[in-house]
Design a protein around this nucleic acid. Structure first.
Length: 495
RNA sequence: GGCCCCGUCGUCUAGUGGUUAGGACACGUGCCUUUCACGCACGCAACACGGGUUCGACUCCCGUCGGGGUCACCA
C-alpha cells in the first residue's frame, strides 16, 4: 500500500509556522515512503476570499519547495480538492448513514441548547448533547411546518474506543464522553469532522498527521468511519509549538505582541526577512523530531531518507529563533554564489538600490559584494543591512560608530593623510591597498586598529562590515575619497 | 469542572532499571583577528514535586503541581 498523506488547511489568512511544520511532517512521511502528499482545502465554512487565501498557501509551499502531488493547480484522481465542491460525496455518505439509522433529525433551537450548556457549566459538568425523544405527532407536525433540523450522529453509549496513535501511543476514550454531534447543519452544510472523515477515505489517505488539538476529534471520526463501514486511516497527533522560552502554546491572538518581541510566527514573515527555505525546513523538522543524539543539520535528501513518525516527540516544543538563525547561517554559508545573488536581488530592488531588471555591471558588483560579505551574510536581506553603502553614493553614518571611531583628536589629521595615501596608491587593488595601509601604520607609529577602524567608518559609515580592503576596493577610489572629505567636513563643523 | 494528552539544562533533544545523565542552540571566558561574522578551545547549566515497586529508579505504578486540548449547528 502506498503511503498517502494530506495537509488540509482551512483557507483563512496566512500560513502559521506550526501548520507549516505539520505539513512538513506529512510531506516528509509521504516522500520517505515514495507515496503522495495531498493538499486539500477544507473550506466547508468559508464563503469569500478562498482564492486569495489558497494563493497564499500555495505560494508558501512553492517557496518551501514542498510540492504536493494532488490538490489545487495540479489536480489529481480524486478531484476536486476543495471541500466546498465535494457536496455530492457528503450527500452520499449522509444517505448511507440515514438508511442505516445512524443519524437522526435534531429539531432543537439555539436557545434550548444554550440553556443546556449553561446548566452544565453551572453544575460543573461537561455538556453533552443527547437525543430528545419527540412523539410521533410532534415529529409529524415539525415536518409539516418545515421546521429546520440538523442531522446528528447517534453516539453508541458505554463503549471504549481505542486509538493507536503513531505519536501519542494508545489512547482510550469512552463514548459516554462524546455528545451526539452534528454532521450536517440545517442548511445542508456538512461539518468538518464528518467531511474530513469522508474525504480521508475517498482520497485513500493512509496517514492523518495533524495537530494534537484534533486528538479528541478523532473519536467521533472513528465512529463515522465505523458507521460507514470504512477502514479508518492511521493517525499521528503532533504536539503544539510553544512560544520561545516557554511551554505556553503560541496564540494567533498574540500576534502583535510577538511582532514587538521579534518573534516570527507566519511563513510570509520569514520570506520577507530573506530566510533560506531549506533552513526553515531543516529547523522545523528538528522541532519535535530527532534522528539521533547528535545530528542537527540535514539536507533535503537526508530528511527524506531519515524521517520517521516514531521519532516525533509526544511533548510540545518551543520555537527557538536563535537556533533557527544558526541553522540559517549554516545553510547560507553552504549556498552557491548564484543562489545567494538570486536571493539577494529582490531586497536590493525593494530598496531601490538596483534597477529591475538588474544591469550586468550591478550584478557583477553584487557578486563581488556577496563574496566580500562571506559568512556575515546570514539572510538575503543582510546584503542591504550590511552592504548598502556599496550601492549608493550618499551613505548613512552610524552615530555610535562615528562617536567611537571618528571623534578622536588625532583622527581628522590622520584621515587627511590617508586620503592622500588612497590618491596615490597604484594599482588600486586589494593587495596593494592592504600593503599601503600596513606601511602607513608602521611608518607613523600607529596601531593598526587606530588606523583601520576610523578609515572603515569614514568610507562605509559603519563600524562593522566586510574586510576593509575589500570595501575600499569595491567602493572605489573616488567614492572613498569623497566620503573621507564628507566625514571631515562634518567633523570640522562639529568642532 | 468532566474527559484526554504532556512534563530531562533557559531552549531543541539523546536516554527505555545500574551512565561522571550525552549532543546542539543560547550564554560566559579565552584563542584567531583591523571591525563584525566564521572557526577553535574551555566553562555554566537539567531528570517538576511527593509517595510507592525494586538490591537499584530519569526510566515502571499512584498522587500532587504545572502546561495543553476538548466538551460548537468552527476548522
Amino acid at each position: 500500500m502506498t503511503v498517502r498523506t494530506r495537509f488540509a488547511p482551512s483557507p483563512t489568512g496566512y500560513l502559521h509556522i506550526g501548520g507549516v511544520r505539520t505539513a512538513l511532517f506529512n510531506w516528509l512521511l509521504a516522500k520517505r515512503h515514495g507515496g503522495q502528499f495531498i493538499l486539500r482545502i477544507d473550506d466547508t465554512d468559508q464563503e469569500r476570499h478562498v482564492e486569495e487565501a489558497v494563493a497564499k498557501i500555495v505560494d508558501g509551499f512553492k517557496w518551501l519547495d514542498m510540492l504536493w502531488d494532488e490538490g489545487p493547480e495540479v489536480g489529481g484522481p480524486h478531484q476536486p480538492y476543495y471541500q466546498s465542491q465535494r457536496q455530492h460525496l457528503y450527500r452520499e455518505a449522509v444517505d448511507k448513514l440515514v438508511a442505516a439509522g445512524k443519524v437522526y433529525r435534531d429539531y432543537s433551537t439555539d436557545a434550548e441548547r444554550e440553556a443546556d450548556r449553561d446548566a452544565a457549566k453551572k453544575a460543573k459538568r461537561a455538556y453533552r448533547f443527547r437525543r430528545v425523544e419527540h412523539s410521533d405527532a410532534d415529529l409529524k407536525r415539525f415536518e409539516e411546518e418545515g421546521r429546520p433540523y440538523a442531522l446528528r450522529f447517534q453516539v453508541p453509549p458505554g463503549r471504549t474506543l481505542v486509538l493507536n496513535d503513531l505519536v501519542k501511543g494508545e489512547v482510550s476514550f469512552d463514548t459516554d464522553e462524546i455528545g451526539d454531534f452534528v454532521i450536517v447543519r440545517p442548511g445542508g452544510q456538512p461539518l468538518y469532522n464528518f467531511a474530513s472523515a469522508v474525504d480521508d477515505v475517498e482520497m485513500k489517505i493512509t496517514h492523518v498527521v495533524r495537530a494534537e488539538e484534533h486528538l479528541s476529534n478523532t473519536f467521533p471520526q472513528l465512529l463515522i468511519h465505523e458507521a460507514l463501514g470504512n477502514t479508518p486511516p492511521s493517525f499521528a497527533h503532533v504536539p503544539y509549538v510553544a512560544e520561545p522560552g516557554s511551554h505556553s502554546k503560541m496564540s494567533k491572538r498574540k500576534t502583535e505582541e510577538y511582532e514587538k518581541r521579534g518573534i516570527l510566527i507566519f511563513l510570509h514573515q520569514y520570506v520577507e526577512r530573506g530566510y533560506l527555505p531549506h533552513a526553515l525546513v531543516n529547523y522545523l523538522a528538528r522541532l519535535g523530531w530527532s534522528f539521533d543524539d547528535t545530528q542537527e543539520l540535514f539536507t533535503r535528501a537526508e530528511l527524506i531518507e531519515k524521517f520517521s513518525l516514531d521519532r516525533v516527540n509526544s511533548s510540545p516544543a518551543s520555537l527557538d529563533p536563535d537556533k533557527l538563525f544558526w541553522i540559517e547561517g549554516h545553510w547560507m554559508k553552504e549556498a552557491p554564489l548564484a543562489e545567494k545573488v538570486q536571493g539577494a536581488i529582490p531586497f536590493l530592488q525593494a530598496e531601490g538600490l538596483v534597477a529591475t531588471p538588474i544591469p550586468d555591471d550591478r550584478r557583477a558588483l553584487l557578486e563581488a559584494v556577496i563574496l566580500a560579505l562571506g559568512d556575515r551574510m546570514k539572510t538575503f536581506s543582510d546584503v542591504v543591512k550590511l552592504g548598502r553603502f556599496f550601492f549608493e553614493d550618499e551613505i548613512r553614518y552610524d552615530p555610535a560608530a562615528v562617536k567611537k571611531r571618528l571623534r578622536k583628536p588625532d583622527v581628522p589629521a590622520m584621515l587627511r593623510e590617508l586620503d592622500a595615501l588612497l590618491a596615490e596608491t597604484e594599482p588600486y587593488d586589494v593587495a596593494t591597498l592592504e600593503k599601503a595601509v600596513h606601511d602607513f601604520a608602521e611608518k607613523t607609529g600607529r596601531k593598526m586598529g587606530d588606523v583601520v577602524n576610523p578609515l572603515r567608518v569614514a568610507t562605509t559609515g559603519q563600524g562593522v562590515g566586510p574586510g576593509l580592503y575589500d570595501c575600499l576596493f569595491l567602493v572605489g577610489r573616488d567614492r572613498c575619497r569623497a566620503r573621507i572629505a564628507g566625514a571631515l567636513a562634518t567633523l570640522d563643523a562639529e568642532a
